[in-house]
Amino acid sequence: MAAIELDGVTKRFGGVTALQSVDLTVEEGAIFGFLGPNGAGKSTCINILLDFVRPTDGTARVLGYDAYEGSTEIRERTGVLPEGYDVYDRLTGYQHLEFAIESKGADDDPDELLDRVGLSPEEGERKAGGYSKGMAQRLVLAMALVGEPDLLLLDEPTSGLDPNGARMLRDIVREESERGATVFFSSHILGQVEAVCDSVGILNEGELIAKDSVEGLRAAATGDTKLVVTVGGDDAAVETAQAAVADLDSVVDTATEDDRLTVDCDNGAKMTVLNAIEDAGITVEDFEAQEASLEELFASYTDAEPAEAVQ
């Protein structure tokens, strides 16, 4: 049985089409990345899964239940980190967790949950109205973990989290996946999805333009990482550096400008490139990686072949 099944789901708000006949299947146990720019319709899609909004056309099934008729059953077995939520200002972190535990009829230990998301018991005693965005995000993630859900729906889960928080989130996603949960992870940041997911769907302007494995995604994104390296020394040094990397397999293109060398390379090839420059005796003073933009990624999918054929 598939964890999530969307069949021809269309959603129009007034005259605006938010989703256009989306077909999507997420297998049980998958860590599915749902990638798309802000406003692409990701949240609308998740809202349909949770019966917050109802599709104009098409059907949505979650964990074998119809999203509308079986909504309560679905939410009993699903942990949700919604987008655009607000916590209850006057309730403490513990009270939030207690509410989630009671609603789900679970018997989790609130202290353990707080610990998993990196909140201290003292922070749990505080009213959530005084929480920072990141703390609130951790609290709601803890609420999502209540009752060992079969499905985790995480809508832009890294927003508001610092790098440590993002790492904590990745660890939790992997732990939950190992436990057997399906994870549905939406993001507008390619790197976030790439780091943790095993398959991805790409949504743009309400249409699912591709569904792919994460390896396929990497391949599609290849050559689109720009590495700008500032080298110590004169123009000759820059040229030496250019010569050192130009023939590497993972490098697509190189260019120079003043004391900077721009390298188009594979996503995972950053260190190879930097090492090659150092090996040639040139000092790397600074470097900056410009990851592939989603727009470029979309172009590589849409120009190549129709979405259905990629799978």
């Binding site: 917050f52 939410r75 919604p82 655009g84 939520y85 607000d86 509410f99 609420m143």
Partner: peptide
């Protein structure tokens, strides 16, 4: 107000009908 602020999403993400 809960609808405007978004805390209703928290309420309805849990198995409350």
């Amino acid at each position: 107000k809960e609808r405007e602020s978004g805390s209703l999403k928290l309420l309805l993400s849990l198995p409350n009908s």
